[in-house]
Amino acid sequence: MKIVIKYDNFEELGYILSNPDYLSMNGRNYGWLCGYENEKLCYIIPFVEKKKWIFRYMQVQSSTIILNGSKQSEKEFLNLAIDKLRQIGKIDFISQPKTNAVFDIYPDNAIYCNFGSYIVDLSINEEELFRNIHMKHRNVIKRAIANGVVIKFGYEVFDDAYDTILDTLYRNNMSMIDKNKLLEFISTNRKSCLIGCSYLDDIPQSAAIILYDNYKGYYFWGGTSENVSLGANNLLHWEIIKKLKSLGVQYYDFVGARIHTNNDRLLGIQRFKSRFGALLQYGYLWKYPIKRWKFDLFNMLYNFKMGKKDIIDEEKNNINI
Results as ranks from 00 to 15, higher is better:
residue 123 S to C: 06
residue 46 P to I: 03
residue 30 Y to Q: 07
residue 124 I to K: 15
residue 144 A to V: 06
residue 31 G to L: 03
residue 136 K to L: 10
residue 47 F to C: 02
residue 112 Y to E: 13
residue 88 I to R: 13
residue 145 I to W: 03
residue 119 I to W: 04
residue 69 G to P: 00
residue 93 F to H: 05
residue 30 Y to K: 01
residue 135 M to L: 15
residue 105 I to W: 01
residue 92 D to E: 04
residue 145 I to G: 00
residue 146 A to H: 15
residue 33 L to A: 12
residue 89 G to P: 08
residue 147 N to Q: 13
residue 39 E to R: 08
residue 43 Y to N: 03
residue 127 E to F: 07
residue 138 R to F: 04
residue 9 N to H: 13
residue 77 F to D: 02
residue 49 E to V: 10
residue 112 Y to Q: 11
residue 26 N to S: 07
residue 131 R to C: 09
residue 109 N to W: 09
residue 117 S to H: 01
residue 70 S to E: 13
residue 15 Y to D: 02
residue 43 Y to V: 06
residue 134 H to C: 07
residue 96 Q to W: 05
residue 94 I to K: 04
residue 79 N to C: 05
residue 116 G to C: 09
residue 136 K to F: 04
residue 90 K to E: 10
residue 18 S to F: 01
residue 100 N to A: 06
residue 87 Q to E: 14
residue 118 Y to L: 04
residue 118 Y to R: 06
residue 63 S to L: 03
residue 127 E to N: 15
residue 23 L to E: 07
residue 123 S to M: 07
residue 126 E to D: 12
residue 119 I to R: 08
residue 146 A to M: 11
residue 70 S to C: 00
residue 135 M to H: 15
residue 131 R to Y: 15
residue 20 P to G: 01
residue 52 K to F: 13
residue 83 D to R: 10
residue 39 E to V: 07
residue 29 N to Q: 13
residue 132 N to R: 15
residue 108 D to Y: 09
residue 24 S to L: 12
residue 123 S to E: 11
residue 87 Q to T: 08
residue 22 Y to N: 02
residue 70 S to R: 11
residue 133 I to M: 14
residue 52 K to M: 12
